[in-house]
């Protein structure tokens, strides 16, 4: 990060970067406002996979990749779901950034043909933290983002509405948290791939025009539910030769259940023995979980259970019978006749 000594360094502890040519300053502040945003940014794993892939496929000359984030906004603009993304070609030279705007618009149109309810919610770049040129990019995306709110793009709201008529309906809510700037540390600077999200706000000093843009880190969560359904193993191993079948999934789920139950049992025992202080909330939850198991008379359960087993076996038998019939018809080449 090319940090230059800068005049509007408001907070001594924060890293202040100023770019003279742009008459803007970027302040990457440790967050305090993050909590006030509420809801936060929820990133789907596909977005991060896209970022990784486009980083691998970046052109030889570029050191990082930037792109557009697509998604939806809910909860009055407090909750931002980032569901999709695409890379946008760009050129970067000392202090200036040029983005292929046509590409961005074309790609946006194409995406919205398939997912019309997804709009631009921000942009991403690889690397750690906010960099010098990012203010310009952020301003551009503030214009591209429909419903970008008070903090980000007051000044550019007028031309913003004209620039993206197609997307105007997509994200109707006014939101102060748009656009989002997502950084993914593909360089693994801290030994891990950090994903963070920022929003910006204009810095005002008294009466004068804004002197800079302040980037504030907001809460950023990766919603793993989707990936978990597919199997995290499948998405993290370099090579999987066999897709996980039903039996394997069941086995792993049962063993997970077992470990969760034994953890709960161990906890209860520890509390009973006085080794761990009792926690009322946890106790209530446990009691609820135990209560949710239906208690039924043995006979009722027995008959219901047997009925279910019989049903399943019956269907299984019928299916086998059908298959046998068809196999016979096939081998005898009698498909012309009713089976």
């Amino acid at each position: 990060m090319a940090a230059a000594p800068s005049a509007p360094s408001l907070n001594a502890s924060s890293a202040a970067v100023s770019s003279v040519s742009q008459a803007h300053s970027v302040l990457a502040l440790a967050d305090e406002l993050g909590a006030a945003q509420g809801g936060g940014v929820h990133v789907h794993p596909l977005v991060l996979f896209n970022v990784c892939d486009s980083f691998i496929r970046r052109s030889e000359s570029s050191t990082r990749v930037i792109g557009t984030l697509l998604g939806t906004v809910s909860g009055g603009g407090s909750r931002v779901e980032v569901t999709n993304s695409y890379a946008v070609p760009h050129e970067e030279q000392a202090g200036s950034v040029s983005l292929d705007v046509d590409f961005h618009r074309t790609m946006l149109q194409l995406h919205q043909k398939v997912h019309p309810n997804e709009g631009v919610v921000g942009w991403y770049s690889t690397g750690l933290g906010v960099k010098v040129g990012d203010v310009l990019l952020h301003d551009f995306y503030a214009r591209e983002t429909p419903g970008a709110g008070a903090g980000g793009a007051q000044a550019s709201a007028a031309d913003g509405s004209g620039a993206a008529p197609a997307t105007a309906a997509a994200v109707p809510q006014q939101s102060s948290s748009l656009p989002i700037h997502l950084t993914v540390d593909t360089g693994l600077t801290n030994g891990r791939m950090d994903v963070s999200a920022y929003v910006s706000s204009k810095l005002d000093v008294g009466e004068s025009a804004p002197v800079g843009t302040q980037f504030t880190e907001v809460e950023c969560m990766v919603t793993m539910d989707e990936a978990e359904r597919i199997g995290p193993q499948l998405l993290s191993d370099a090579q999987t030769n066999k897709l996980p079948g039903e039996a394997e999934g069941l086995a792993s789920s049962v063993s997970k259940l077992q470990s969760v139950v034994s953890t709960a049992v161990r906890y209860v025992e520890q509390v009973v023995n006085g080794e761990t202080p009792a926690d009322a909330a946890t106790g209530r939850r446990l009691a609820e979980a135990v209560r949710s198991v239906p208690t039924s008379a043995t006979l009722d359960f027995e008959s219901a259970f047997q009925d279910n087993v019989q049903d399943v076996l019956m269907i299984e038998y019928l299916a086998k019978l059908t298959q046998t019939h068809m196999a016979l018809a096939d081998r005898l080449n009698k498909f012309s006749l009713p089976i």
């Binding site: 990784c52 691998i56 593909t186 693994l188 791939m193 998405l235 993290s236 090579q239 897709l243």
Partner: peptide, 13 residues
């Protein structure tokens, strides 16, 4: 069908 992931994606996951 085999599933393949890049090293970067493995790191991410």
């Amino acid at each position: 069908l085999h599933v393949h992931n890049s090293a970067l994606v493995s790191a991410l996951m």
